[in-house]
Amino acid sequence: MCSEIDEQRSKKGLPTRDIKVCGDRPCHDIASKKERQQNKSSPMEQFRLGVTLDLIKCNPGQFLVIKAKNQLPSCISLENIEKLRERGWAISEQKQQEMIQVISDNRMKNIKLSNDLENFNPTLNITPDEINNQRYLMFEGFGWHQLHNVEITISEESVKESIRTKTNDSGHLNMPWPIPDSVGGKMYHIFASDGIHQLELDMPIAPKR
């Protein structure tokens, strides 16, 4: 068995000495598989799958923090959290608690709204991104009225931006929005409507670096 493993690892350009075997395969391969499984539940992976910040789970011994530059989640060990906050890498504990509370309240509001809609359950996932130094909000939604325009408004006390996209024949929308330089560093109200149904929520938008 070890010679077969040696041969396989040699073909991959990997070292062949001191190989530990677990059952019928190298322990290294099992560990790698476990790492891949853990990566699937990383905070960013959860976020990309649509898990809201207030529901993101960290591994034992780690705690959720929000990155200051893009408002994205990360799981950090307790002894490093304050250091990162002092350096400005993560937002303060108070600001994070306030943000989480707003997101949680909006999530519950949207759950109630969805439950009130008969035979209809629209969703709107909003993911921040940055491409070639341009900030974007990526809007993706399901369950909207088929082949209808959906108008999305992003507003704050001194800002109001409107964008429009059209759903496909299955009620799916997908639209990137380049964030203007003047937008960021505050909580913004997002309102989406296809003329028949609507959703609204509040979310932070990171300032331009």
Rank of each mutant, 00 (worst) to 15 (best):
I131C: 10
M108H: 06
L124D: 04
I152R: 04
F63S: 13
Q96S: 11
I131A: 12
S114K: 10
L113G: 01
K95W: 03
V159R: 12
E118Q: 13
S77R: 09
V159A: 12
E157F: 06
P73I: 04
F142W: 02
C58Y: 06
S77L: 04
Q62H: 09
N59S: 13
S42F: 03
N133P: 00
L53P: 03
K112Y: 13
I66F: 03
L117P: 01
F142G: 00
S41H: 09
E140V: 08
S114N: 13
I91Q: 02
Q96M: 15
Q62V: 00
M44K: 11
E79C: 03
Q134R: 12
M99L: 15
M44T: 08
A90Q: 07
E98R: 07
I154Q: 06
L55M: 08
G50S: 11
L64V: 01
T123L: 02
T127M: 14
Q46G: 04
N80H: 12
N106H: 11
P73T: 07
L72Q: 15
N121W: 07
E82G: 03
V150A: 05
T123P: 02
N106M: 13
R87Y: 04
V150F: 05
M44Q: 13
N149F: 10
K83W: 04
I100W: 06
G61T: 07
N80E: 13
E157I: 10
L147E: 15
S74A: 15
L78Y: 14
N59L: 09
Q46M: 05
I56K: 01
G141Q: 04
G61Y: 08
L84R: 09
T153P: 01
G141L: 01
Q62Y: 10
S104L: 09
N133I: 05
G61I: 08
S155I: 05
S77P: 00
I131G: 01
Q71C: 09
E151D: 14
L147Y: 08
K69D: 11
